[in-house]
């Protein structure tokens, strides 16, 4: 998988790149409109992360260019502005997702995976991991080929964990991904523990291995090791 990361803030770009490195993507970084434009013309990418506000041009034009070059390229817009017009405009031009700064790296990672899955696996949108098989479109989980009932939150949790396997996820990132804007109603994130406990129990009871580990004081980690 070849990715292009178009972001003028070098510090942020390098942080994102080093987080994504472990996913075994080939990552090209571009820090300006002209640099990005040059790279888009030279290479083909499977996925592009595009910051809309660049010092020498508007990222929206790059979205258009990327689409023209390769229909299969998944595009995620990164913007500092939570402007609905930008969002609609970007999505209309062929961007697949829109994420506002600042974001959790785990969230970005999950979104990239989701976009790539949608773009590059024809037919079913399915994630397979050892004995686990998740049909994302149907929101179905199969363990050793038998369907197991998961609640909406449990399903979202599981998918988020699998998208970020081998990574430490802090409670904030988990809550924000699964509960979204509603997270503000919670006094503490202790309830996450209850949901993860339930998820773990269901997985174990259905014959899956115990992949979820808690990381003291921080959060959780889904690991195959």
């Amino acid at each position: 998988m070849k990715l292009i990361l178009i972001e003028d803030e070098k510090d942020l770009a390098s942080t994102i790149a080093s987080y994504l490195k472990e996913e075994e993507y080939l990552i090209d970084k571009a820090h300006s409109y002209s640099e990005a434009n040059e790279k888009i013309n030279l290479y083909e990418y499977d996925c592009a992360l595009v910051d809309l506000m660049l010092p020498d041009g508007n990222g929206i034009d790059l979205v258009k260019r990327l689409k023209e070059r390769n229909q299969q390229c998944g595009i995620i817009i990164i913007s500092a502005k939570e402007a609905i017009e930008d969002k609609i405009n970007g999505l209309n031009l062929g961007a697949d997702d829109y994420i506002t700064k600042p974001f959790h790296l785990a969230e970005l990672n999950a979104r990239i995976k989701s976009v790539i899955r949608r773009k590059h696996f024809d037919g079913g949108n399915i994630v397979q991991l050892n004995e686990l098989k998740i049909d994302i479109d149907k929101r179905e989980v199969l363990i050793n080929e038998s369907a197991i009932e998961f609640t909406r939150r449990e399903f979202d949790l599981l998918l988020f964990f699998i998208s970020n396997k081998e990574r430490v996820l802090n409670k904030e990132a988990i809550v924000e991904h699964v509960w979204g804007d509603n997270s503000s109603a919670f006094d503490s994130y202790d309830f996450v523990y209850t949901h993860i406990k339930n998820l773990r129990k269901k997985l174990k009871d259905s014959g899956a291995k115990d992949y979820l580990k808690s990381v003291y004081g921080i959060g959780y980690k889904f690991t195959l090791k």
Binding site: E9, I16, K101
Partner: peptide, 12 residues
Amino acid sequence: QTPVAVIKAKAE
């Protein structure tokens, strides 16, 4: 937003 994004990303 940008510096906050950098701090958050680095910490994570």
